[in-house]
Write a protein that binds this DNA or RNA. Structure first.
Lengths: 219, 219
DNA sequence: CGTTAACTTGAATTTTGTCAATGCCTGTGG
DNA sequence: CCACAGGCATTGACAAAATTCAAGTTAACG
């Protein structure tokens, strides 16, 4: 299987480029907000908390997870810089949001956010557009979880991260992947062992190279 | 494993009760629309089609699927009577929507729908609320696909359908399940054989009983 | 440096998928 | 009314994939 064929069947998120013009409107709402820092593993919000704020990710990576009864975890999504976290929450947040590494973000009260969106004919469609993109992303994950094999899942994740890292000129060749095996496993619906074996295999076959921990080159 | 423990960790959809008061507003928009009929397997819309309409399901069951390159299918969601289909589509529909059995629905142009939503302070939050429920439903499916075993998946589906069938007084004991094994498999991320074996097993163990094809009693 | 957490690797086991054969409704046309 | 075709479902034997359990390594950090 080629790496390319493992890529998602769905359009990549279109809002990962920092100065994405059509999205500037919504992101602009955060421009007066102070920057907040979150350390590795720190919670931005918890599953079921009253959804009081929305968050613009400025730097770093945030993961959103559902915890199951048996204690296992499923990541429902990752959020990248330039994206808005906490949108698809009506009364309460859906899942735990945690900083993967060091994260910088801006917070905006939901009231103010909704008010701004509701009163602007320009912002409203953008808001809907973001929600739809979250849905599209969720669908892509369902396909991945329902039908893809371990190797496809891992490649899919690597490519997604590479695409995001190579901000605007295509996938970067060498990328920083600050995600532990556990996180990858919980995102991909696999065990750490399976992820580890798959990575080893990809390296052995020369599909990817590992220069340092968390640093890879994709062919 | 008990059937109950296989139930979703997330709140059931709250909008499956026909006369759900808080939702009346949005559903009311369809009141002047003519009823359309769709036969078993007929497409309501196709993946990638321009999203010109939204649909209120009046009767029957609609499935939404993504088709993969290799031809296999993944159902991203089912839509029940009293629900609105096609909401989470910005420019184009996300997935193929098909009638499972005979389906009756009303159609409303997206323009009119958006206009009504945009201009009503009452409707707007309902609209957002529906979108968020779709997201919640998507998350529940991710958990199911990522971590649950075949038997849990099947029980989860049966309970969801039972809950929906027993309109307001709890799960019905005997329910009509008009869904083929193929559909179940594509919804659950399994093969027909695995679904079949699991069903046989549940019947053998007395967890469910089968009175006729597509008719079951759950203990 | 030594401790700890993260990662890798191997072997055995479980779960699910695949392939192939068969059975069972349902509806159609003789 | 019966025979039969075609789709769906079941079942079995086997293969493949992933999980589990159990050691080991490696790397990061105080």
């Amino acid at each position: 299987m080629s790496v390319a064929s493992a890529a998602s069947h769905f359009p990549a998120r279109l809002h990962i480029i920092p100065n994405d013009q059509p999205k500037a409107g919504l992101l602009g709402l955060f421009s007066q907000q102070p920057l907040e820092m979150f350390g590795r593993g720190q919670a931005v919000f918890r599953d079921g908390d009253p959804a009081m704020h929305v968050f613009k990710i400025v730097n770093g990576l945030v993961r959103v997870a559902k915890i199951l009864n048996d204690g296992s975890r499923v990541f429902t999504d990752f959020f990248y810089p330039g994206e808005i976290l906490g949108l698809a929450a009506d009364e309460r947040y859906l899942g735990d949001a945690e900083a993967v590494g060091e994260v910088q973000l801006c917070r905006l009260s939901r009231n103010r956010f909704q008010q701004a969106v509701d009163s602007s004919d320009q912002l409203r469609p953008q808001f809907v557009n973001w929600l739809c993109q979250e849905t599209a992303s969720a669908q892509a994950r369902m396909v991945l979880l329902a039908r893809k094999k371990a190797e496809e899942r891992v490649c899919d994740l690597l490519l997604t991260l590479a695409r995001r890292a190579g901000n605007n000129n295509g996938p970067a060749s060498e990328i920083e992947i600050p995600i532990s095996r556990i996180d990858m496993a919980d995102y991909l619906g696999l065990t750490i062992e399976t992820v580890s074996r798959t990575m080893t295999n990809l390296i052995r076959r020369g599909v990817i190279q590992s220069s340092a921990r968390y640093r890879f080159t994709i062919r």
